[in-house]
Amino acid sequence: MIPPDLRGRRDRDPFWVAVNAAFNGIQRVRSLRDPAPPRVRPVDRTMRLTVLEVREEAEDVAAVRLGAADGRALPGWQPGCHLDVLLPSGRRRQYSLCGDPADRRTYRIAVRRLPAGGGGSVEMHGLREGASLAVQGPRNAFPFLAHDRYLFLAGGIGITPILPMVTAAERFGADWRLVYTGRTRASLPFLDELPAGRVTVRTDDEHGVPSAADLLGDVPGDVPGGTAVYCCGPAPMIDAVRAAVGEDATLHYERFAPSPIVGGKPFEVELGRSGRVLAVPADRSALDVIRDVLPDVAYSCRQGFCGTCRTGVRAGDVDDRALSDQGDATMLTCVSRATGGRITLDL
């Protein structure tokens, strides 16, 4: 037994003193270290849906209705939302939801067949009732905001995001009108679903190609904040409307094709896996040039929001350099450009 000291206290056992000191030292070292970040596990939000119906809505336009095989309720959505559709071929495409947001059992999308396109529309037109599709979303890149007065402009298949907006505006009792354009009446889907009385249909074969003035009417001279303009259609239509709408009106638009490249500078892309070097001219995107030699490279929206074409950057700098979950540099090849002479991609 360890004898007590003069004050009646026992001496501390040297062994336990050493153990306690070692333990405290380990704790201090641990406290100086940065805490390990929590492990982030990616969440797979992919849904497997069944094709319930494929219906011809207009010339070369098919409406596809999707639902869960067990009939369960689907995630809710708002006008302007779209679905990411993962096709059996591996292609990923975005299609606007054009049904009724109150219907929680089915989603409806519509696709115009483009034989000279990237193949996604042709594949969608080949779907049959009972087929299974993987989808993600809904996501909203074209939000519909509350307003007292609306002007809706739709060109052809551009009616798909506009249709639920028109329905919502009608239900809200808002002041609205729609100008719906296309080549012919036979090419315009969902004509029979539009409320009567506030819709102007203009077709090229009957009225000629409309000008911005034909589409906008008196909106450019509207009172400040008076009219919200929602426009979806071909690029020339959107560009003309953008140029004509004054600052007093609020313009919202969505493209189905990439906008032209303005002020671009040429650069080079080196494909890291093969070492091949491609020249990207000032008026083309890196994606377009890469597709010339790698036609199966993944892409979808070509406008920089879906992320399908995001590619690792091995060397060089780009104008929207971002980091992946692993901390590696990436770029969107559909819209991003190199800030220097050459970049090397993980392709």
Rank of each mutant, 00 (worst) to 15 (best):
V17F: 00
T50R: 10
A18L: 08
R48H: 03
N20T: 11
R39W: 06
D11N: 10
R10M: 08
R12E: 09
R30H: 01
P42H: 15
P37I: 02
R9Q: 15
R39S: 12
P38Q: 11
R41P: 01
R33T: 05
R45L: 05
F15T: 10
R41W: 04
I26E: 12
R30P: 01
A36F: 00
A22E: 02
L32H: 02
R39E: 14
V17M: 03
V17L: 10
Q27Y: 02
R28S: 13
M47R: 07
D13H: 06
R9F: 15
A18P: 01
R33D: 05
N20V: 09
P14C: 08
L32W: 13
P38F: 10
P14T: 05
R48Q: 07
V17N: 04
V17Y: 02
V19E: 05
D11V: 09
W16D: 08
A36M: 01
R39Q: 13
R30E: 08
D11Q: 11
A18H: 02
R39D: 11
R33I: 07
R33G: 10
V29E: 14
A22D: 01
R41A: 08
P42R: 15
F23H: 11
R45I: 00
D13C: 12
G25T: 14
T46V: 09
R45E: 09
P42F: 14
R30S: 03
